[in-house]
Amino acid sequence: MVKEGLLDILKGNFLVSDEASKNWRFLLFASVLAALMIASSHQADKKVHHIADLTQQVKTLKSTQVKHKREIQQLLLESRLKEELAPIGLGVPEQPPAKIQIVSQP
């Protein structure tokens, strides 16, 4: 019994029998589902690769930002500013700035 059923499946008799229309509809349905699964899997793989690329770009941009921030901090150091502004005659004043006080008149 089982052997005959297996032989019928292997020979393809289930596709040409009188009730073949039911089998063809099921095979078509199963094929469409398989195609949808494959398409969904490919979309998921694409998204995973895209996320990995974006993560790598974020890491690169963060390291660039840290590098530039460090360079700006170095440029803003008082000793560095003295060196840069000395050729044009600017420097730290030797006297502290004078404080201006406004006295209100009654």
Results as ranks from 00 to 15, higher is better:
17 S>F: 01
61 L>D: 00
60 T>A: 07
62 K>D: 11
19 E>C: 11
54 L>F: 02
14 F>S: 08
23 N>V: 15
76 L>Y: 02
9 I>C: 09
29 F>H: 11
42 H>R: 08
98 A>Q: 15
65 Q>R: 02
73 Q>R: 06
52 A>Y: 04
85 L>E: 05
12 G>D: 03
62 K>P: 00
105 Q>G: 07
38 I>C: 02
14 F>W: 09
50 H>V: 07
63 S>Q: 11
43 Q>Y: 07
97 P>D: 06
12 G>V: 01
64 T>Q: 15
100 I>Q: 06
74 Q>M: 06
81 L>V: 14
36 L>H: 05
75 L>Q: 09
38 I>A: 09
5 G>H: 12
48 V>K: 12
37 M>H: 10
78 E>Y: 00
59 K>G: 01
97 P>H: 05
10 L>M: 06
24 W>S: 00
6 L>S: 06
84 E>N: 11
91 G>H: 11
78 E>R: 15
27 L>H: 10
53 D>G: 04
70 R>F: 05
56 Q>V: 04
66 V>T: 03
48 V>Q: 08
51 I>Q: 07
68 H>K: 02
102 I>K: 13
88 I>P: 03
48 V>F: 05
18 D>M: 05
9 I>T: 10
92 V>K: 15
37 M>F: 12
66 V>Q: 13
64 T>E: 13
26 F>C: 09
3 K>S: 13
8 D>K: 15
96 P>R: 14
9 I>K: 08
24 W>C: 01
50 H>I: 07
20 A>R: 12
66 V>Y: 01
60 T>I: 06
65 Q>C: 03
26 F>Y: 13
58 V>K: 08
22 K>F: 14
26 F>P: 01
25 R>E: 15
99 K>E: 14
55 T>Y: 02
50 H>C: 05
62 K>Q: 13
19 E>I: 04
62 K>M: 11
22 K>R: 14
47 K>A: 08
24 W>Q: 07
49 H>I: 07
101 Q>S: 14
7 L>D: 10
10 L>W: 04
44 A>D: 03
20 A>K: 10
79 S>P: 00
96 P>I: 04
16 V>D: 10
37 M>D: 08
89 G>Y: 02
75 L>Y: 08
20 A>D: 08
77 L>M: 15
52 A>P: 03
98 A>C: 08
78 E>G: 10
28 L>G: 04
21 S>T: 12
18 D>S: 13
77 L>N: 12
20 A>Y: 06
44 A>T: 05
23 N>P: 00
82 K>V: 10
25 R>V: 15
94 E>M: 06
29 F>N: 09
32 V>K: 11
93 P>H: 03
85 L>V: 05
20 A>N: 02
59 K>Y: 03
76 L>Q: 12
42 H>V: 07
42 H>M: 11
71 E>I: 00
79 S>L: 02
66 V>K: 14
